[in-house]
């Protein structure tokens, strides 16, 4: 008896959403979809355009030939590619120890409430947002000239790019270190391990996949930087490979800059081809980072 009015009541409570609400819902979804597609379409257009212009020029000859000022057909990016690879390796050698050590200090040793460590923390956050050309000026003033006075050589380029991406490495490494649960640290310390042994044998191995991923992503940012290298005076055209860390050098983005800005428009295809080479390098590095993350990332 009493079931009948109850059923009537429940039918009234669970109403369909009004058509106005459903329209709003749909509009919102479309707006989100549009935002997503902006990024995707721009990237696709860029890649497509570059491919049309330069795909025919990409060949083994292109990456094994020195650039030429007179022949757009036989020009290449050998010296730039070698320079970029050297730069990345040197840069990694610089940023990994410094970045990881900073992250370990901030996460494991620093007193988080102290004025100093909060100052350092805010500084690092801000440094990550400083325009790259400013780092170029810093590199020019302190590394190329000034106190270090290295000149516009590979080491100076690597240090400048290293300074540029160091904040990113520190931030990512800190996150990776923080992700290692404190129960692991407690377990290790309770066994009589020192803090250093705990960090070296438990925390860092646990954080390694995250750190490695972060370093690769930082390097893939450094690889495309043009402005700081231009400012420190790196060559844009070089018919020689750097032989040591104190040699002058050029790099992929500089080669692209040179090709595109040549008065002879014939060189633009070479520029597009160089962009393809650089993009390929980037894809390989990012794929490596994704692989590392998926393969070794730990679910605690």
């Amino acid at each position: 008896m009493s079931a009948v009015p109850e059923a009537g009541l429940s039918r009234k409570v669970v109403e369909r959403a009004s058509s106005g609400q459903r329209t709003k819902d749909l509009m919102f979804r479309l707006a989100l979809l549009f935002s997503v597609s902006v990024g995707f379409v721009v990237l696709a257009a860029l890649v497509l355009d570059v491919m049309i212009d330069g795909a025919s020029r990409v060949s083994l000859d292109f990456i094994t030939s020195f650039p030429s000022r007179i022949s757009p057909e036989s020009t290449g990016v050998k010296s730039a590619l070698i320079g970029t690879i050297y730069l990345m390796v040197l840069c990694a050698v610089f940023i990994v120890p410094v970045g990881v050590a900073t992250a370990v200090y901030l996460e494991e040793y620093a007193n988080r409430d102290s004025r100093l460590s909060r100052l350092i923390e805010v500084n690092i956050q801000n440094l990550a947002a400083v325009p790259s050309v400013v780092y170029g000026i810093l590199g020019l003033a302190f590394i190329v000239r000034g106190p270090l006075g290295l000149g516009p050589v590979l080491l100076a380029g690597a240090l400048t790019l290293g300074l540029l991406v160091l904040p990113v490495v520190i931030i990512v490494s800190r996150e990776a270190i923080r992700a290692v649960p404190s129960s692991i640290r407690e377990g290790s310390l309770a066994l009589g391990a020192t803090q250093w042994q705990t960090i070296w044998k438990q925390v860092l191995p646990g954080a390694l996949p995250g750190i490695a991923t972060g370093v690769i992503l930082a390097l893939s940012r450094a690889i495309g930087e043009t402005a700081p290298l231009l400012v420190i005076g790196a060559a844009t055209f070089a018919r020689f490979n750097p032989e040591g860390i104190t040699d002058r050098f050029t790099a992929m983005p500089l080669a692209i800059f040179e090709f595109i800005s040549d008065a002879d428009t014939e060189f633009r295809a070479a520029g597009a081809a160089a962009i393809i080479v650089l993009l390929a390098l980037l894809v390989v590095m990012n794929a490596g980072a994704i692989f590392l993350r998926n393969r070794y990332e730990r679910k605690w």
Binding site: Q202, G206, W300
Partner: peptide, 8 residues
Amino acid sequence: FQKPNPFP
């Protein structure tokens, strides 16, 4: 400890 905390 309360929760087993083997090392990975």
